[in-house]
């Protein structure tokens, strides 16, 4: 197997009861690649992303991250997750902790870093997302865009090998979207491996190395953005794109 493959999904299926949400997904993501997943609501994008770090347990198929098979019953899932950063649509910052505590807590409890190491790393991550002056603010005192950037810093502080973004900007007021997208874009330029579920076609077009279009639990079409967004081959892709671009 190619050692540059970071995430590999093979014949992935997921059902919720009788609802067959993922119907055989095969994807490989190589180091440094930025893959954007687009598709209509309910097509299974979030479910796919949540399978990559096993927040959802797949019904069948294998998930391999950095050569480690997460679907193997002997796999230490907590250890594996600490290397997979995840950013949620609803931020999910810990409201009882300040920004810097949010960024430190998993470094301390999971990576067992000492207070000084953790604080230093947290400060540099907060600076990286442009929030060095918000260290001691509680989430409730921050705007949505600032909260989401703290959430990105929190994930980055674990030194992840891959970052998962699930509609990271969908809950934001339009004027705050740009700050978050800028952080994500600079991450991509620094070579982070990223799997991004997004409705931001502009971001997908400019930043993605590859765009994956999903519908109804399968990958309908994938390729470089100029192909999938610029000149889609499949009728389903075209009708989806015309519905989002006309908004």
């Amino acid at each position: 197997m190619n050692s540059d493959v970071v995430v590999s999904l093979q014949d992935l299926h997921k059902s919720f009861g009788t609802n067959h949400v993922l119907r055989g997904i095969d994807v490989e993501i190589t180091r440094g690649e930025v893959v954007c997943i687009i598709g209509p609501s309910g097509s299974g994008k979030s479910t796919l992303l949540r399978c990559v770090n096993m927040l959802e347990t797949p019904s069948s198929g294998t998930i391999t991250v950095l050569g480690r098979e997460l679907t193997d019953i002997d796999c230490d899932i907590d250890e594996a997750r600490s290397k997979i950063g995840m950013v949620f649509q609803s931020f999910n910052l810990f409201p009882h902790m300040t920004a810097i505590e949010n960024v430190c807590v998993a470094q301390r409890k999971v990576l067992k870093r000492n207070a000084k190491e953790a604080t230093t790393a947290a400060q540099s991550m907060l600076a990286r997302v442009g929030l060095q002056d918000k260290e001691n603010s509680y989430p409730a005192q921050l705007s949505g865009g600032q909260q989401q950037r703290v959430a990105i810093a929190r994930a980055l502080a674990m030194n992840p090998d891959v970052m998962l973004f699930d509609e990271a900007t969908s809950a934001l007021d339009p004027e705050l979207v740009g700050d978050v997208l800028a952080v994500m874009q600079s991450l991509a330029q620094e070579g982070m491996t990223m799997l991004v579920v997004t409705h931001e076609m502009g971001f997908a077009k400019n930043v993605a190395d590859r765009v994956v279009f999903m519908d109804n639990g399968v990958i309908v079409e994938q390729g470089p953005p100029e192909q999938v967004i610029g000149a889609p081959r499949e009728e389903r892709t075209r009708s989806f794109l015309s519905s989002v671009l006309n908004h």
Partner: peptide
């Protein structure tokens, strides 16, 4: 909220 547990687990906490 459920997202709190998910965020914590996604950071590698048991």
């Amino acid at each position: 909220p459920k997202g709190q547990m998910e965020a914590a687990r996604s950071l590698g906490m048991s």
